[in-house]
Amino acid sequence: MLKQSKPLIYEEIKRRIIELEMKPGDPINEKELSAEFGVSRTPIREALIKLTQIDLVEFRPRVGTFVTQIDIATVKSAYEVKKNLEAFAAELAAKRATDEEIKILFQIIERFSTYDLIKDYKLCIQDDQLFHEVIRTASKNDILIDTLDMLNTKTARFLQSIHYVIQQYDGLITSLNSIADAIRNRDAEEARIQTESHTRLFLEEMSKNFFA
Rank of each mutant, 00 (worst) to 15 (best):
E86V: 04
A191K: 13
E12T: 13
S178D: 04
E190H: 08
D128W: 05
A191D: 11
F210Y: 13
S161I: 02
E204P: 01
Q53K: 02
L2F: 04
L159F: 05
E32R: 02
D149M: 00
I72Q: 12
E100I: 13
C124D: 02
I135F: 00
C124S: 10
K140F: 04
L8S: 05
S77F: 02
Q53F: 00
R186I: 00
D149H: 00
K82D: 00
E19S: 12
F59W: 01
V67I: 09
R41Y: 03
E189I: 04
L172C: 05
G25Y: 02
S197R: 14
E100C: 09
S207I: 08
I54A: 03
R184Y: 12
S5Y: 09
R41D: 12
T98G: 08
P27E: 00
V134W: 04
V134M: 07
L92A: 08
Q194L: 13
E100L: 13
H132N: 14
V81E: 15
K3L: 14
S197V: 14
K140M: 10
I108M: 06
P43E: 07
S113Q: 15
L144S: 08
H198E: 12
E30Y: 13
L92N: 05
T74A: 09
E21V: 05
E101M: 11
T114N: 06
G38L: 12
R111G: 13
D128E: 06
R16Y: 07
Q160R: 14
E58P: 11
A156Q: 13
R157W: 15
T114R: 09
Q107F: 14
V63S: 07
P43C: 02
Q160E: 10
T68Y: 03
A90W: 12
K208V: 10
D55H: 05
I135N: 01
E46F: 07
Q160K: 15
N84V: 07
Y115W: 14
R111T: 13
S178V: 10
D142F: 04
R186V: 00
A212N: 08
E205I: 01
G64V: 08
I135K: 09
A89T: 00
